[in-house]
Amino acid sequence: MMFTLMQKKLLNNYQQDFPLSTTPYKDIALSLGVSEDDVLLAFSELKNKKFINRIGSIITPNLIGTSSLIAMAIPENQLQSVANIVSSYPEVNHNYERENRFNLWFVLITKNEKDLQSIIEAIETEAGFKTMQLPLLADYFINLGFDIDFDD
């Protein structure tokens, strides 16, 4: 994939502190020496082509609501069907297969601990397998975005 210099800057330089003015895209345009339409078009294209998921916020876990990472160890031939059960819950956000004896990993977010436990129980009952709960105890990482290396 080939990106223009402007696209590279849009991808790398606005991952944090997106302008909080009435015309954020115009502010970006001014700093890059292009027009607001150039920036709007370029962002639309990057989004349509799925190079960016969105321009939005990442929130600090567990300040509002309750969440937990959950892992399950599922026999290979039942993984897809259990994954489908897990994904069917709207409270499930990420649901991945990983290379490990614990091969199904997902994040559950609810309004409180009671709801979290009742959904976990429902998943265990429906899937027929136990879960391992791995809630966050401390977050050491300061999320400054992701530095993309375009060179290789």
């Binding site: 997106f18 990442i58 600090t60």
Partner: peptide, 11 residues
């Protein structure tokens, strides 16, 4: 600190 960051979220 509720919003950890606001900006482009890349794929």
């Amino acid at each position: 600190g509720l919003i950890k960051r606001l900006g482009v979220i890349v794929n």
